[in-house]
Design a protein around this nucleic acid. Structure first.
Length: 191
DNA sequence: ACCGGGATGTTCT
DNA sequence: GAACATCCCGGTG
C-alpha cells in the first residue's frame, strides 16, 4: 500500500481518471475501491466549474495537482475531486463511486438511508458521506503522508477496458464521454 | 422496476 | 432569481 505520488496527478485528467479506477481512497477511518470517476478540464470544458475562470469557490482547481477540491451542491451534498494537471491549469477528477473495503460499520452509521452495502458509496455525495468528506477538507494535499484523505495503490491494476460514457447530471458539456467505470461493478451510481 | 417531486442553500447572473 | 457534477421517498405497475 503506497500513497499515490504527485506525479500521478500531474497529468491530463483524461489520463488520470481511468488510472484511478481500482485505487483505494482512504478517509474518515474507512476505505473504498474507486469504481467510477469523471474527468473535468476547466477552460475548454463547459461542464467544469472552472469554465468561466477562477472564483473563490473554484480556486483550488486552478492550483497544483494532488489537492482535494470539495464543493457543496443542491443545498445539502458534498462532492470531492482530485486536482490534476499543472499548477495554473484547471483540471480535476470527480470521485463518483467506490466499493466499500474497510470501515463498513462506520459507513453504515454515516449513511442510514443505505438499504444495502452497495448503496454506501454509489454516488459522488454518498461516497463523501460514507467517508466523512466535507468542506473542511477542501484544498488539502492528498500526497502528504499524514493527509486525512489519501489515495493508495495496493497492486490491483486498473481495468484494461474501462467503461466509458457521457458524464452524469450535467447540462453543458453533457456530450463529452469523460466518465470512466469498472464495467458492471455493482457499486456504480448507475449502469 | 421505473418515475416524479421535494429537500435545502450556495454561487453566480 | 436561476441553476445546481444529488439523493431520497413515495407513488404506480
Amino acid at each position: 500500500m503506497k500513497v499515490l505520488p504527485r506525479s500521478f496527478f500531474a497529468r491530463d485528467a483524461l489520463d488520470v481518471a481511468p488510472d484511478l479506477l481500482q485505487k483505494i481512497v482512504e478517509a474518515g477511518r474507512c476505505e473504498g475501491r474507486i469504481v467510477e470517476v469523471e474527468a473535468y478540464r476547466g477552460r475548454e470544458d463547459p461542464g467544469s466549474h472552472g469554465f468561466r475562470g477562477p472564483t473563490p469557490r473554484t480556486e483550488v482547481m486552478f492550483g497544483p495537482p494532488g489537492h482535494l477540491y470539495v464543493y457543496f451542491t443542491y443545498g445539502m451534498h458534498w462532492c470531492a475531486n482530485v486536482v490534476c494537471g499543472r499548477d495554473g491549469e484547471c483540471s480535476a477528477v470527480l470521485l463518483r463511486a467506490a466499493a466499500p473495503v474497510a470501515g463498513l460499520e462506520l459507513m453504515r452509521s454515516r449513511r442510514p438511508a443505505a438499504r444495502r452495502d452497495r448503496d454506501l458509496c454509489s454516488g459522488p455525495a454518498k461516497l463523501c458521506q460514507a467517508l466523512a468528506i466535507d468542506g473542511v477538507l477542501d484544498g488539502i494535499d492528498v500526497c502528504a503522508a499524514d493527509s486525512p484523505v489519501r489515495f493508495l495503490d495496493d497492486g490491483v491494476a486498473p481495468p484494461d477496458d474501462p467503461g466509458c460514457s457521457t458524464r452524469i447530471g450535467l447540462s453543458a458539456g453533457a456530450d463529452l464521454p469523460w466518465r470512466f467505470t469498472v464495467a458492471d461493478d455493482p457499486n456504480l451510481s448507475r449502469s
